[in-house]
Nucleic acid binder design. Structure first.
Lengths: 205, 205
DNA sequence: GCAAATTAATGATTTATTCAAG
DNA sequence: CTTGAATAAATCATTAATTTGC
């Protein structure tokens, strides 16, 4: 019997790899339905909840940005030094603001995460709607805002809602065989006991 | 050329992104010719030398492996704990199992960097020579040993040599438009079967 | 070798910012 | 100008990794 489980989600290597692969493939802010699917997939490899997925993408994106920003500022500092030192030798195309370069030089995403599109919304019009909308207007990096019609809301509120009312259509059970995901793991998933994450957040701010 | 205040190479964001993309695509230990190409390509985005590229891949590879190893050992330890807890299974030697799983878990490379395959040093005996020589000693971590025939290793020494004598055949001039970033990717690969999913370790509260 | 102490990484929360509708 | 939605940034908190003294 599992003793006191950890209070927070600890991704298995498989989960981590898949998440990273998705991130790499362009997934940044999955919407509710997508999170559900991802969660379902990943739950094959271990205990996981929707909010874990949500937070993971939030954090990963944020820290990625942070990293980039730091790089940039460092680089710009350097360039300034350069300029100060000798007025010539202008390094090309470097004087940019913080955010734009992110997109300008962004490397094209390699994969369109097809598994996210795997039909399972036939009889869930609103979900389908959500997905379709989001897909068309997906923005990755805060570079362009979605217009009002285009948002699948999630976040803290969404989490609560989803957690409370299982808004997941029955068709969204874990898909079994996806090209993207190896389905070969010893399907042990309930080693550690569960407990929902700290419901009592002692915020000592 | 501008005398830089900093003594070491500071990759521009673009350079970094490209390097990372290449790494992601499977490039690990580019040979002399490849390094030349890469350097030429990246020099468009800022000052860079061959050795920078060389060192970058060395470091990146090493740190990547380290990261993976840590994850795995962590996970395996966890599994061992479980086993011990549940069935008193004989304890494995962690050191033994350290290595092999690495490959098993490794996410398949998505892209074959075709541009790097452009035949280059078939008729560059001295380079080949060097390569052959260094190849045997340039062991990284012992995790992925290329078969003796294929890979070109080099090292610090090699760098100096190459930098001094342009031993790169004419075919290795900088390519202009490389298919660096294919927009397509293969699917995922097979996952390892050794790891079971499980959650976190029991904390000792 | 080991475990306490320290540090780094990262999951989870909270706060601030941005944009646009009203 | 105010407000709400969305989400980026900052922060808190816990876990893993490393270091250190024995």
């Amino acid at each position: 019997m599992p003793q006191v489980p950890s209070t927070r989600w600890c991704p298995t290597p498989e989960q981590l790899m898949i998440l990273e692969e998705m991130y790499r493939s362009g997934v940044r802010t999955p919407n509710a339905a997508q999170i559900q699917q991802i969660t379902a997939h990943l739950s094959y490899y271990g205990k996981i909840e929707g909010k874990n997925v949500f937070y993971w993408f939030q954090n990963h994106k944020a820290r990625d940005r942070q990293k980039l920003r730091r790089r940039l500022s460092r680089h710009q500092q350097m360039l300034q030094q350069h300029q100060m030192m000798n007025q010539q030798a202008p390094q090309l195309h470097q004087m940019e603001t913080f955010r734009s370069p992110l997109q300008q030089h962004q490397i094209p995403h390699q994969i369109t995460p097809q598994f996210l599109q795997q039909g399972c919304y036939q009889d869930a019009p609103e979900v389908m709607n959500l997905v379709g909308k989001l897909e068309t207007c997906g923005r990755d990096d805060g570079t362009e805002r979605p217009s009002a019609g285009c948002s699948a809301s999630y976040g803290y509120e969404w989490m609560m809602v989803t957690e409370a009312s299982s808004a997941v259509p029955p068709c969204c059970r874990p898909l079994k065989t996806l090209e993207l995901f190896p389905t070969q793991s010893t399907g042990l998933k309930e080693e550690c006991s569960t407990s929902k994450s700290s419901s009592c957040s002692t915020s000592t701010n």
